[in-house]
Design a protein around this nucleic acid. Structure first.
Length: 197
DNA sequence: TCCTCGATTACCT
DNA sequence: GGTAATCGAGGAT
């Protein structure tokens, strides 16, 4: 059914990879079945030169260590009460990452409905970085896992129709980096996260 | 040790 | 539009 992409896919330059991830399928294989969603929104964090990145100035700590590893690794971290999911990018020692901000549910609809609450409109199940990890059952335990390996991986999907780009969300205290156009999304896809005022 | 704050979300008014 | 939730990372002391 779904098959992990080869590791070479993740070796593209970070901004190219951010765009290439759109349309790909994020898959989580669980004992009870498969949960999968098509990636429709991403944000690039450009490491040493990017004030909004955790690894700005090559800051190397227990938390950011994984970003210095090879491309395609999973970087998860906690934001308040939520888990956020990133794809490590760039060669080793270049601490870049791509935040997966939204997916469009493809498989495991019942599982997602159960986890997000059956009364919530489907549009709101996965339209945000914290929402999609909850919907798909992705936890901090996957930090350091690789996206080419089961049970959590990225597979080929239906190509995007059109791509938009613009400034990233929620990085208000990042000086000049606030304006960098590092957010990518599929134009007019209803599962893209809403801009936060 | 102590303090501040966050790559968010949901619920309140 | 405002804010609580909720806790560890990161920097200051």
């Amino acid at each position: 059914m779904f098959k992990p992409l080869d590791a070479i896919f993740f070796e593209a330059p970070t901004l190219d990879l951010s765009r290439d991830l759109l349309g790909k399928i994020l898959v989580h294989e669980l004992p009870d079945g498969i949960v999968a969603g098509r990636i429709v929104e991403t944000e690039a964090y450009m490491g040493a030169e990017d004030r909004a990145a955790h690894s700005f100035g090559n800051r190397r700590t227990k938390r950011t260590e994984i970003m210095f590893g090879k491309s395609g690794l999973v970087y998860t971290y906690q934001m308040h009460t939520h888990t956020l999911l990133n794809v490590v990018s760039g060669p080793e020692e270049t601490p870049r990452a791509i935040l997966i901000r939204a997916i469009e549910p493809v498989d495991g609809i019942d599982f997602m409905a159960e986890r997000r609450g059956r009364h919530m409109p489907m549009k709101q199940w996965t339209s945000g970085p914290g929402k999609l990890t909850k919907a798909m059952g992705i936890t901090m335990d996957y930090n350091g896992h690789h996206f080419t390996e089961r049970p959590l991986y990225i597979a080929e999907g239906e190509a995007v129709r059109a791509v938009s780009k613009g400034p990233r969300i929620g990085i208000g205290n990042s000086a000049e980096a606030v304006h960098f156009p590092y957010r990518f999304w599929e134009t007019e896809n209803p599962f893209v996260s809403k801009f936060r005022p």
